[in-house]
Write a protein that binds this DNA or RNA. Structure first.
Lengths: 158, 158
DNA sequence: TACGATTTCATCGTACACGATCTAATTAAT
DNA sequence: ATTAATTAGATCGTGTACGATGAAATCGTA
């Protein structure tokens, strides 16, 4: 279906709806993850934190935030909940007491096995091949990096 | 970049991170939209509601929710805020008083002109061609529809 | 008509997510 | 060494987002 890309309304109906596609796909992912994560008592952002810690333990709040594109005001309560659940420890770094280091507990490490089948469930729900998903990921990462660069340029240049 | 797709860890590092790519791209979109929408006093979901109403006025809460993949418990407070801002009217349908119909006010209609340049700002920030964005949108829509179908199958079949 | 089932929206409690702001610790400059 | 600037987390207020639940209106079937 060939479209006219010249008018302002056609622009709205393209990238406007691309951003909406991303928005609604994100919701759809959440809804697929929810029942799988409920069994582990985790929310999706908590699960992302665990993936990072499983890969490399003993990270600071700031380093988690840079990986997840989240600020400390989002991470601090989230990590305190995870501490309350007994999944992680929060302790100030003796070397630099401004930093709080996040470490897995035995219980947090043990969750890795229980979560092992989640990726395959998601893969099946997506109904796409690994190659197709890989290709999409590359494109979406490129898009996100462009958007982030635009934010940094228009912002004060944090 | 040939990879071994056989082990469970390789699966994690592919589609796990595709979902994370979607999650972080969604955040990036929000951050780009925020300054543009702040000038209009809108949040992103409120803007989405207005786009739908600009296209077709006088919708029910349920019909907005089906378009946006949102439930009434999310939309009701959002629409009440928009009513408080004087952008929409909420009125029960006399034909079927279970339904609440959402109508644009003059102020809500007028916002359309002030928002006219937003799509082009987003397009520029994305750093991609319209064709590339169109292609991504098609793929992401396909992915979301697959995920939604998987949800409906595993759920009670709402 | 009556009465249970369904539909539609609203309410409540929990959990992100952000900007603005605050405190405490470190670092830099005088 | 005292002060100023920076950095790292924490706190506060607002706004989605969801599941569970509730209330009111409508519909279906007897």
């Amino acid at each position: 279906m060939p479209q006219d890309y010249s008018g302002p309304d056609s622009v709205r109906n393209l990238e406007e709806l691309l951003c909406f596609a991303v928005y609604s796909a994100n919701h759809a992912f959440n809804r697929v993850y929810k029942p799988l994560l409920d069994r582990l008592g985790l929310t999706y952002p908590q699960y992302l934190v665990l993936i990072l810690l499983w890969e490399e333990d003993d990270r600071t709040v700031g380093s988690l935030g840079r990986k997840l594109f989240l600020e400390s005001n989002t991470l601090t309560p989230l990590l305190k909940r995870m501490e309350g659940m007994g999944l992680v420890e929060r302790r100030r770094d003796p070397e630099d007491e401004r930093q709080v280091r996040i470490r897995l507990t035995g219980k947090g490490r043990a969750l890795r096995d229980q979560a092992a089948d989640i990726p395959r469930c998601i893969l099946e729900a997506s109904g796409m091949s690994i190659d197709a998903l890989q290709g999409m990921k590359t494109e979406i990462d490129f898009l996100r990096d462009n958007l982030d660069a635009a934010i940094r340029q228009s912002g004060t240049g944090s």
